[in-house]
């Protein structure tokens, strides 16, 4: 904990969990998709559904999806901005089993056709966790550059990925491995201490057994 965990952040109100955290969820989802969003379906759960409207959670999520950050006063106008930019969106309520009270399921489609589905929670103080990505369990805090690698569940892929990252001088901060069943689909979630370059990502993508590589950069990108 440091001084600026106590004083700050600078944010648009009213709530660090229901507003600032919600903007971060939208923003992070956009960074993961890495394209302008054509359509977004949002399913609100728990307290996001019950008190979300009064906290501006709906506007905050849309603002994030448009690339707006938690301290930007345009959050309140995000519905109009979405219309201007031609982003379609819809809201529904949902009951997500066992989810944190401040959770949302997002189904996104980008202008180039990429699709992404994720469940994320706002856990207080503006901090968030992505709990599920494309149907697979995850645990992403979006505080580090993060690689999400889908691979076939066979021996050797994890060490291969670790070797490539090591050669490229990327230090692994944390690594989690999830799979649906033995020999089925597996996902590696790797939080890194350094940014991963596009070349390294391309290298990972061309490795056999790797099906999909998604990268969450901590560098700001408003345009794709």
């Amino acid at each position: 904990m440091n001084v600026f965990d106590i004083m700050g952040p600078i944010m648009v109100g009213p709530s660090s969990s229901h507003t600032a955290g919600a903007v971060r969820i939208g923003y992070t989802a956009r960074q993961l998709l890495r394209e302008e969003i054509k359509s977004a379906k949002l399913y609100l759960h728990g307290s996001f559904l019950a008190t979300g409207k009064g906290h501006g959670t709906d506007k905050a999520l849309i603002a994030g999806l448009l690339g707006i950050k938690p301290d930007d006063e345009r959050i309140i106008q995000s519905f109009d901005l979405a219309k201007e930019r031609g982003m379609e969106y819809s809201f529904e309520g949902i009951e997500l089993k066992g989810a944190h009270p401040n959770s949302v399921l997002l189904k996104l489609e980008g202008v180039r056709g990429t699709q992404l589905e994720l469940v994320a929670s706002s856990i207080g103080g503006g901090l968030i966790v992505i709990n599920q990505i494309d149907g697979v369990k995850a645990d992403i805090t979006a505080s580090y550059p993060t690689l999400i690698i889908h691979n076939v569940d066979e021996p050797g892929h994890v060490s291969m990925v670790a070797t490539i990252l090591g050669q490229q001088a990327v230090n692994i901060a944390t690594m989690h491995i999830y799979r649906d069943k033995r020999g089925g689909n597996a996902v590696m979630i790797i939080e890194c201490d350094q940014e991963v370059t596009p070349d390294t990502i391309a290298m990972l993508r061309s490795t056999s057994g790797i099906k999909k590589v998604t990268y969450l950069s901590m560098e700001e990108e408003h345009e794709f």
Binding site: I6, M7, G8, P9, I10, M11, V12, G13, P14, S15, S16, T19, A20, G56, K59, D71, E73, I75, I76, G125, G126
Partner: peptide, 18 residues
Amino acid sequence: ESNACMKKIVAAPTAGSC
């Protein structure tokens, strides 16, 4: 009030007590 009206504030230490 600015916090409740979705204006920019500094959480100190929280948004509610800004």
